[in-house]
């Protein structure tokens, strides 16, 4: 008895942990998310014109989950591979318009999509929205800059988001997620042909009554395969061989043309 009492301090943390989990388990347990992407590897082939990846999500509840007054809402955030981007401002010098001031942003996703099932202000309370930085406004604030210049960088950041948006690389849609049943939703992620190869992170958030209930993360990769992949690898890793090969091909085709269309 005395011996087991002496053991108590050592056992205490473990005991508390079990107790705590038991208390939480019987209490209000939040929903969890189950998500699945239609594919985890999107191939760029010779006739690639962009692609689409579909995300399916289900809200998992059990007997202890409390009931919600409002419907579930979901947000899907997709971030493409990171890039360093320079934004330049054309300025009039004399009568020429040339590149003047510039701002470098060192941490910019090449592709960004904020897809939600309803307008953001209906999904999350303002304070939460600010903290999560969902959507293009949030992304704009999030993009780190290399040289801060007392407020001037804000116009460059806005320009970056505007230009990326025009290219279809930044997308925001409050109809991007559809609930098929109150607990099952789908979202189509459309990748334009210009979206670069690399890793695309997908973050799925579940909301109800203005608060965040669950987050799930997954990803897919956009990769060149077959001929396209071999060409790129050769051009990058063995550029001399690639250059000589291209030169040889060009000379061969030039010779072929001179034989086929010989006029003398």
């Amino acid at each position: 008895m005395i011996r087991s009492l002496a053991l108590l301090p050592a056992l205490l943390p473990a005991l508390l942990l079990v107790l705590a989990s038991a208390v939480l388990g019987t209490g209000a347990r939040a929903e969890s998310l189950v998500t699945s992407l239609s594919s985890h590897q999107v191939a760029i082939t010779s006739n690639y014109t962009g692609s689409q990846v579909v995300l399916f999500g289900a809200v998992r509840r059990d007997a202890q989950t409390i009931s919600r007054t409002g419907p579930y809402q979901a947000a899907v955030i997709v971030r493409g591979p990171m890039q360093t981007v320079t934004v330049r401002l054309r300025e009039e010098r004399g009568f020429l318009w040339i590149n003047g001031e510039q701002q470098k942003f060192a941490n910019v996703p090449a592709f960004y999509a904020a897809l939600t099932s309803a307008p953001l202000d209906e999904i999350a309370a303002p304070a939460l929205r600010d903290r999560l930085a969902v959507g293009l406004d949030g992304l704009g604030r999030d993009i780190g800059d290399t040289v801060a210049r007392g407020g001037r960088e804000a116009t460059f950041r806005e320009a970056l988001v505007r230009l990326k948006r025009r290219l279809g690389l930044y997308v925001e849609s409050d109809r991007g997620v559809t609930f098929m049943t109150p607990e099952i939703f789908r979202s189509a992620i459309v990748l334009p042909a210009d979206s670069p190869p690399g890793n695309y992170e997908v973050e799925v958030m579940l909301f109800a009554d203005g608060s965040l209930l669950a987050v799930d993360r997954t990803n897919f990769e956009l990769v060149k395969i077959g001929f396209e992949q071999r060409i790129t690898a050769l051009a990058e890793n063995q550029s001399l061989v690639y250059g000589l090969g291209t030169a040889g091909t060009a000379i061969f085709l030039g010779w072929l043309a001179s034989v086929v269309f010989r006029r003398d």
């Binding site: 591979p81 990171m82 890039q83 360093t84 981007v85 320079t86 934004v87 330049r88 401002l89 054309r90 590149n99 470098k104 060192a106 941490n107 910019v108 090449a110 290399t146 460059f156 320009a159 970056l160 505007r162 230009l163 990326k164 670069p196 690399g198």
Partner: peptide, 11 residues
Amino acid sequence: FSLSITQVGAE
């Protein structure tokens, strides 16, 4: 304004 990708990957 114009954009140019200076580098692939974050700096």
